[in-house]
Amino acid sequence: AREKKVVKSKVGETVSLPCCHEIPSSESLHKYRVYWQKNITEVVLAYSEGNMISKHERYRYRTEMDPWNLTLWISPMEILDNGSYQCVVQRNSVVVCDESVILFVTADFSKPNIMAEVLADSCESTEMEIVCSSHGGFPKPKISGALDNMSVEWNASWVSESSLSPYNVTGKLVLNVTKDVNITCSVEYNGFAKSTSLLLKKTNDCVVPPVPPPYNVITASIIIVITFILAITLAARYLPRHVCSHCCKREDLVEEGVKEGTKPPISSKGTPDTSSV
Rank of each mutant, 00 (worst) to 15 (best):
E78R: 01
D273P: 12
K140L: 08
I114Q: 04
A107M: 10
N204E: 05
A220M: 12
G83R: 00
K38V: 01
A120V: 01
K194H: 10
Y85E: 07
I218V: 14
E42L: 01
N113D: 15
T271H: 13
P213K: 00
L70K: 06
V277H: 13
H21I: 14
E13K: 11
H135C: 01
T170A: 07
W158Y: 04
T106Y: 07
R237G: 01
P210M: 11
R2P: 12
V243F: 12
S195N: 01
P166Q: 13
K5V: 05
T71F: 12
L173D: 10
T271L: 15
N182P: 08
S157E: 13
S134Q: 02
R2Y: 14
S268L: 15
T14A: 10
V7Q: 03
C185Y: 09
T274Q: 13
P67A: 07
D273I: 11
K172I: 02
V94T: 06
C248K: 06
N155K: 05
S267E: 14
S275R: 08
M150W: 07
R91D: 13
S267C: 14
H246F: 11
A236L: 08
R62D: 11
Y59S: 02
K38A: 06
V34S: 02
Y61L: 09
W36F: 08
Y238M: 06
W158M: 05
S162Q: 03
K201H: 13
D108R: 02
M115H: 14
T227K: 11
W68Q: 04
K201V: 14
M77V: 13
N69V: 11
T227W: 07
L72T: 00
S26R: 10
W36C: 10
T106D: 00
V88R: 05
S151I: 12
S197T: 14
S133H: 07
E117Q: 15
I23R: 11
S186L: 02
D252F: 00
V174I: 04
L173M: 07
P265M: 04
S268V: 15
A116R: 07
E260V: 09
K179D: 07
P210E: 14
C248G: 06
K10N: 10
E49K: 15
E117F: 10
T71M: 03
T203I: 15
I183Q: 01
K38F: 09
S48V: 10
P18D: 06
E22Y: 13
K179F: 09
V89P: 09
L103W: 08
F138T: 00
D148C: 03
V277R: 05
K202E: 09
D273Q: 05
I218M: 06
S16D: 06
S125L: 07
N149F: 14
V15A: 02
N204I: 03
K4W: 05
E127C: 00
G50H: 11
S221H: 09
S186R: 06
